[in-house]
């Protein structure tokens, strides 16, 4: 019975980003989403003695994160209508496509964060800061050809790790 600290640490490190991304889909505030993820993990930690070995801790985490997110939306009045809140409340966190989306996000983030530093920087500037290759080249003091080479390498790595394609 129960989860030991080492196993819990592994569960935490493997799932913290995806649980945060999952909460963020509801609350739309990364800092608050991180806070909710911490609270979800804390609830699981407090129940660790009661959790049977081999049970699906991930499912439990998302269920708690879902409930915390709904409570957050209600407390902060961050919903367009009562119907919208009710729809979110009724979502089944065990079959939610939001979980799959959050886990895909986490896998992409993990892949990008493990790229060589220059490729990561170039990729984030291009895809997420929406800078042009010329602007990236200027800011980093490298040639446009080098920017393109970093982008090609980064996309190749993503395709291979995420979609299993060369």
């Amino acid at each position: 019975m129960g989860i030991d600290t080492k196993t819990f640490e592994t569960v935490f490190k493997q799932n913290f980003v995806s649980v945060t991304a999952y909460c963020n889909k509801y609350v739309r505030d990364t800092e608050d989403a991180k806070d909710l993820a911490h609270r979800a993990f804390m609830k699981v930690w407090e129940k660790r003695e009661e959790i049977p070995q081999g049970s699906n801790v991930r499912a439990l985490l998302y269920k708690i994160a879902h409930n915390l997110s709904v409570n957050y939306l209600r407390d902060h009045k961050k919903f367009a209508s009562e119907d919208e809140l009710e729809a979110v409340e009724c979502e089944n966190s065990e079959t939610s496509t939001d979980i799959e989306a959050a886990e895909l996000e986490a896998a992409i983030i993990d892949t990008i964060n493990h790229m060589p530093e220059k490729s990561r920087t170039v990729f984030l500037m291009s895809r997420y800061d929406k800078l042009t290759n010329t602007s990236i080249a200027d800011q980093l003091g490298i040639s446009i050809k080098t920017v393109e080479a970093h982008m090609t390498a980064a996309l190749k790595m993503l395709r291979k790790k995420i979609w299993g394609k060369e």
Binding site: F12, K13, F16, T20, T30, F41, E105, I109, Y128
Partner: peptide, 28 residues
């Protein structure tokens, strides 16, 4: 094939740091 990451700030999460914070809060 632009990756569907919803928020740029998710890239800045440091799981080791978050784990250290969690340990401190949980008294581990």
């Amino acid at each position: 094939d632009i990756p569907p990451v919803s928020d740029r700030r998710l890239f800045d999460i440091d799981t080791d740091l978050e784990w250290a914070r969690f340990k401190a809060a949980a008294g581990i």
